[in-house]
């Protein structure tokens, strides 16, 4: 049984409460609980507690506590170098791959910590997938790009690899464009198609959470629109955290938005509320284009 299926009715309850949440949060904004979902609400899919990330002497993320609600899109915005990507990378232990990165605090997935030394980051990443800013297809065919992750996700020699590849490519809304050229190199696709190939690759693992690190910042508006459509489709079954430089994008596709600045989480809340009545002065300045 998929763990998310149990929580979905409660998730929809949360949606109904979403409008009221902005009010509730503002009352407790003095402490970090303000960044959490309202007490008594649904338990979040992921939860960061007092997360601090250092790269050597540089502190990239300072004491961030943030809840990621299940089956919603959480957008993280903020100026360049504000720590949002670093924060994102700590949600699936990708900071482990950076030499000199030190993470303190805790991150939970379905109430279970993913940060301990006894936790295998490989298993975390199978449940929390990631798509990067620059699409990086493997130097193999379109089919093999996805088949690789099907094999990673399960076991070699599986007979339904082709079916799973097709399913993932359909999910990423790429199938119709590539079904006749599956043997061609993944790098022969256009930029937007490459990014959707990378999304298909990530979906083939069947993750519960998908982290997207500025997935459209290297794409033209049409390719961007396709990815955004795709995200809106995927959020029905998947928890998505997306880092974006585009506030319009955050407004278009996310339920909740978090604003980072200088390594700290300044404010998080319902997207509509964030863009119309931000609590913090800094957020307002950033959203209205006064800095960043």
């Amino acid at each position: 049984m998929h763990p998310m299926e149990q929580s979905s009715p409660r998730a929809s309850t949360y949606l109904a409460e979403g409008a009221a949440h902005g009010e509730a949060a503002s009352k407790t904004s003095a402490d970090h609980a303000g960044n959490a979902l309202s007490p008594g609400g649904p338990s979040p899919k992921m939860r960061a507690r007092n997360l601090t990330v250092r790269y050597g002497p540089i502190v990239a993320v300072t004491d961030v506590s943030l809840d990621v609600p299940a089956r919603q899109v959480l957008a993280l915005i903020g100026p360049s170098g504000c720590g949002k990507s670093t924060f994102l990378r700590s949600l699936n232990r990708m900071n482990d791959t950076v030499p000199g990165a030190v993470v303190s605090g805790d991150v939970e997935l379905d109430g279970q910590s993913i940060c301990g030394t006894e936790i295998d980051p490989v298993l975390v990443r199978k449940r929390v997938g990631m798509v990067f800013q620059r699409a990086s297809p493997f130097p193999t065919s379109i089919f093999e790009n996805v088949a690789y992750t099907v094999r990673v996700a399960a076991h070699r020699g599986q007979r339904d690899v082709a079916d799973r590849v097709e399913h993932a490519l359909r999910q990423a809304e790429l199938w119709n464009e590539v079904k006749d050229r599956l043997k061609e190199s993944g790098t022969s696709l256009s930029g937007g198609q490459q990014q959707r190939l990378c999304i298909a690759r990530a979906l083939a693992v069947e993750p519960e959470v998908l982290l997207m690190d500025e997935p459209t910042s290297a794409l033209d508006p049409i390719a961007t629109a396709k990815i955004e459509e795709l995200v809106s489709e995927l959020r029905k079954g998947l928890t998505i955290v997306i880092v974006t430089h585009s506030m319009q994008q955050a407004a278009r596709i996310s339920h909740r938005t978090g604003f980072f600045n200088m390594g700290s989480l300044i404010e998080v809340g319902d997207t509509t509320t964030m863009f119309t009545r931000p609590r913090e002065h800094q957020t307002e300045d950033y959203i209205s284009g006064r800095f960043g």
Partner: peptide, 27 residues
């Protein structure tokens, strides 16, 4: 070998071995 390829593979939940054998060496 470009770092994004390694990260792309690791981020999918591939092990180091799978990443080296399946992505880095073929490249």
């Amino acid at each position: 070998v470009p770092q994004p390829l390694r990260e792309g593979s690791l981020a999918l939940g591939a092990t180091k071995w799978e990443t080296i054998w399946g992505v880095v060496l073929p490249y």
